[in-house]
Design a protein around this nucleic acid. Structure first.
Length: 543
RNA sequence: GCGCCCGUAGCUCAGCGGAUUAGAGUAUUGGCCUCCGAAGCCAAGGGUCGUGGGUUCGAAUCCCGCCGGGCGCGCCA
């Protein structure tokens, strides 16, 4: 059976053409919060009231009259009823509610997959940490967010590339090399002769110890340190379950001439001018509050030039959709990069690329904020979090809030193995289903022929309806780059499942009923597993 | 000072291209283990949606002011 919601939508769309010919209206179908208002509801009559200048309830009754035959033929409900200001409500037949179960069983790990992307190339750039130290919790949030966004887009039919961009050449790399050299010479942070703004973390000493290069060979030390930290970051990312397809080096943009090309093109288009010994770009032409320096008076380019050159490569590589995941502390670069791209006149759209900016992560443990770690010095690392609470909890927690709200990571909560801990609560629901199947001992394939009309209780039908929301939910989460919606959904689904599981016995003697309930449980298991997989969290069979 | 973001139950947060009585979790209180996992379930209480205006038949949702908090405002990245 087709999705009841879509059936209802089509009936109302046809109804709208007849009630209000020539008026364009988007039919929204909602699931009312109040069960007295039925299972599905639409406010289309209220929407049309404005353009038709009519009473919403009169328009609603015209809808009821004109769709009567279609409703009767649809099989999903007995009648449309009018309520309140003019809402059109329907109560679904039990069979319509349960029908989603057979769909989930046949689609399995593909349940929820969509094809909005239709194979289009998308790039998600995230983490992009410079190789000057271990990854911090902010990188963790980016990793969890970016990877989940990438997974959501893949699930909607996009060809996704996960990319990591890093600066292997700038001033901060010089500082890194100096810090390692100073350590190798026996200096410690704060000693006289320690480089100004040098890196103080313990890892600097590790690098100094491991480095076989001559202390005086700055270039060699620098190369060694960058490689060392890249390896460390990769190990952390692997422990985090994040894999990148492309690592893009900022230095390559200089060596292949792309930076020069960008600056020259701006000049050719008359977008730059000299002032105070520097070269400036007219970013104010594109909404910036002041123009920006492109080439400093010492002859070096500012960071945002290679940034723009980098985004040109994204466009040239065929990515018409690009999502950059960054901290809100970088929000000023958004306008600048877009302005820089516009100034090149390459026909790149104004809003290119998309950004998801996330705010800061505060780590709490034992009622106090944790600000330092031994390894990194001044910040808590991703590795610290994984060591404390495990990868699944870190990934689930870090995507469970919308990106632009501050996040307090409660280490003690993440360690609890109780219902207070959302990730355990969701994983536990999955493990419970698996446990039923282990006791049943039958073959899951047989569930496809279960008679779903045996599902009749309020809880099981509500659970089935909840499953039916999953495809639309993930589609919207992908559109809005909002994986937190998936985390919320999973928590609600888990709660509903636990409630059902405690209220009803699954392995009843009545075989037909048992099979129907097992089919429902299996559908829940698939949906939980699919959702968790999008978030990069495992779905354990036992806990 | 300017720009962006946030302000919803004691706490942590959803909802915000307007629409039927504002949601979830947690905390609090009271129930539920001969029976598929009590790592669970059920029930109750708890909110002037920061604040003052405006638009609308209708605003947590859209617009403006104010208050409170975060981030950014470099010829740093």
């Amino acid at each position: 059976m087709a999705d009841p919601k879509e059936v209802f939508r089509r009936i109302l769309e046809d109804g709208a053409r007849s009630v209000a010919p020539g008026v364009a209206v988007q039919v929204h179908i909602e699931r009312p919060k109040n069960p007295e208002h039925g299972d599905l509801s639409s406010n289309v009559a209220l929407q049309l009231a404005k353009s038709l200048r009519g009473n919403p309830r009169d328009i609603a009754s015209r809808f009821v009259a004109t769709t009567q035959a279609a409703v009767a033929a649809s099989g999903i409900t007995d009648a449309i009823t009018i309520a309140g200001a003019g809402f059109l409500n329907i109560r679904l037949k039990a069979a319509a509610k349960a029908s989603v179960v057979s769909r989930v069983l046949s689609e399995g790990c593909d349940f929820g997959r969509g094809n909005a992307g239709n194979g289009a190339k998308v790039q998600v750039e995230f983490v992009s940490a410079n190789p000057t130290g271990p990854l911090h919790v902010g990188h963790g949030r980016q990793g969890a967010l970016g990877d989940a966004i990438a997974a959501l887009l893949e699930f909607q039919g996009y060809a996704v590339t996960r990319e990591f961009y890093y600066n292997d050449a700038g001033a901060q790399i010089d500082k890194l090399a100096w810090s390692v050299q100073a350590r190798a010479r026996g200096l410690k942070p704060g000693d006289s002769g320690w480089p100004e703004e040098g890196y103080a973390g313990e890892y600097i000493e590790d690098i100094a110890k491991a480095c076989q290069e001559s202390v005086d060979d700055g270039a060699a030390v620098r190369r060694f340190a960058v490689e060392y930290l890249r390896r460390e970051q990769d190990a952390d990312l692997q422990a985090f379950g994040v894999k990148f397809d492309v690592y893009y080096l900022e230095s390559s943009l200089y060596t292949d001439g792309r930076v020069d090309t960008v600056v020259r093109t701006w000049g050719d288009k008359g977008k730059t001018y000299e002032k105070d010994g520097a070269l400036w770009l007219r970013t104010t032409d594109y909404g910036d509050d002041k123009d920006r320096v492109v080439r400093k008076s010492d002859g070096a380019f500012t960071y945002f030039v290679p940034d723009v050159a980098y985004h040109v490569t994204k466009w040239e590589r065929g990515f018409r959709k690009v999502v950059n995941v960054q901290g809100t502390d970088h929000h000023s670069t958004v306008l600048r990069v877009r302005a820089g791209l516009q100034a090149l006149g390459l026909g790149i759209p104004e809003g290119y690329p998309d950004y998801v900016l996330h705010s800061l992560v505060k780590v709490m443990r034992g009622g106090a904020e944790v600000k330092i770690s031994k390894r990194a010095g001044s910040y808590v690392t991703v590795r610290d979090l994984i060591d404390w609470v495990g990868r699944d909890a870190v990934r689930f927690f870090l995507v469970s809030r919308k990106a632009d709200s501050d996040f307090v990571f409660d280490v003690d909560l993440a360690l609890q193995k109780t219902d207070e801990n959302p990730v355990y609560y969701v994983q536990y629901a999955h493990a419970r289903v698996c446990s039923v199947f282990a006791q049943w001992g039958g073959e899951a394939q047989r569930l496809g022929s279960a008679d779903l009309s045996r599902l009749s209780g309020d809880k099981e039908l509500a659970l089935a309806q909840r499953l039916g929301e999953f495809p639309e939910l993930v589609a919207e989460a992908a559109r809005e780059f909002a994986p937190h919606a998936v985390a919320f959904y999973l928590r609600e689904l888990a709660a509903q499942f636990h409630s059902y599981y405690n209220a009803e016995r699954i392995l009843v003697d009545d075989e037909a009923l048992r099979m129907a309930r097992l089919a429902l449980c299996q559908a829940v298991r698939h949906t939980l597993a699919n959702g968790l997989s999008l978030l990069g969290v495992s779905a354990p069979e036992k806990m």
